[in-house]
Amino acid sequence: MSALLKLAAAVSVIALSPTAVATASAQELSVIASFSIIADLAKNVGGDRVKITTLVGPGGDAHVYEPKPADAVAVAGADVVLVNGLEFEGFLERLVEASGTTAPIVELTSGSEILSSAEEEHHEGGEEGHQEGAEEEHADEEDEDHGAFDPHAWQSVRNAEVYVDNIAVAFCSADAAGCDTYKANAEAYGEQLIALDAEIRAAVAQIPEERRTIITSHDAFGYFEHEYGVDFVAPEGVSTESEASAADIAALIEQVRADKASAIFVESITNSRLIEQIASETGLTVGGELYSDALSSEGGPAVTYIDMMRHNITTIKAAILRS
């Protein structure tokens, strides 16, 4: 039996304890965010009315995260649990079961434009799209291991706007008294996201179309590619748990040698050795570090979602244009 399940009974007692209830602020909504990007979006919507606990913090990899007993305690006492969904948080089901929480588990990708993990097609409409895809057969082994859909939907700013709307709805449902505040915050932050989307499009427009193919560690930028027209090639799949085969690496090296890739980048959550190997064998210079699945720690270049997206496009553009 896992440590989480061993503590499940104890967690239930803590969640129901009168002392625990008495110490909670009556004006503060207790929110669990599954990882750092969601936590930042939630902070912008919730403001001072919410207390956010982040399970997978800055620099963490939610693909491989192993929950701690303290996580189960936190989830047990939450008013709202915000998650990405699309099987991004592989730990989620067992954590929720261990916690015994009665809080709503809100999948923020609901209503977003969702891409298949093979990037061959896309589905719109959140849960409806999920159900349709679940009925399809996928021969690709990676799809079977990591789900039929690419979970990195936040890499499209327009999808991030949907996340924000879903957060506001969840907060209003849990705290009706604060609903006007949540709606106003979401609207104000949404304006910032609209400006960010336009900024990214303008930056991409300055990159010649024939030079918009780049290499990253794992396949986390499909939504960025779909939305903004930069072609990302990765030796690993949509999850960092997958490993590139020798054949995959060889094919990628041949593609680079055929001058089809303009730049190569490491990712903040992955081991850089594979990218450095490819760079060494192709003569490309590593163009910098991109942030895909997690924000940076304080003092880094990607401490917020907007900072992350701006850093990524600035790094991509600079590396391509100087190569």
Rank of each mutant, 00 (worst) to 15 (best):
M1L: 11
S2P: 04
A9W: 08
A9C: 08
A10C: 11
A10L: 10
V11P: 01
S12H: 11
T19K: 15
A22M: 13
T23Y: 12
A24C: 12
E28T: 13
E28I: 12
V31I: 10
S34D: 09
S34K: 12
S34N: 08
D40Q: 02
L41A: 04
K43P: 01
K43R: 15
D48R: 13
L55D: 05
G57L: 12
G60H: 02
D61W: 05
A62K: 04
V73Y: 07
A76G: 10
V83Q: 06
S99H: 04
I105C: 01
I105R: 08
G111V: 01
S116D: 11
A118F: 09
H123W: 14
E128Q: 15
H130G: 05
Q131M: 11
D143L: 14
E144K: 15
H146V: 13
G147W: 05
H152V: 08
Q155W: 02
R158H: 10
D165F: 12
C172F: 02
C172R: 13
S173F: 06
D175V: 06
G178P: 06
K183Y: 11
K183C: 06
Y189Q: 10
Y189C: 04
G190A: 05
I194V: 15
I194L: 14
D197M: 05
A202K: 15
A203T: 15
P208T: 08
E209N: 09
E210L: 10
T213G: 06
T216H: 04
H218I: 07
H218A: 04
F221V: 09
G222R: 07
E225R: 09
Y228R: 11
P235Q: 07
S239A: 09
S242Y: 04
S242M: 03
E243H: 09
E254T: 09
S262M: 02
A263N: 06
A263G: 01
I264F: 02
I264L: 03
N271V: 12
L274G: 01
E276D: 10
E281N: 08
S292H: 09
D293I: 07
E298K: 12
G300I: 09
P301M: 12
T304C: 02
N312G: 05
I313D: 06
L321E: 10
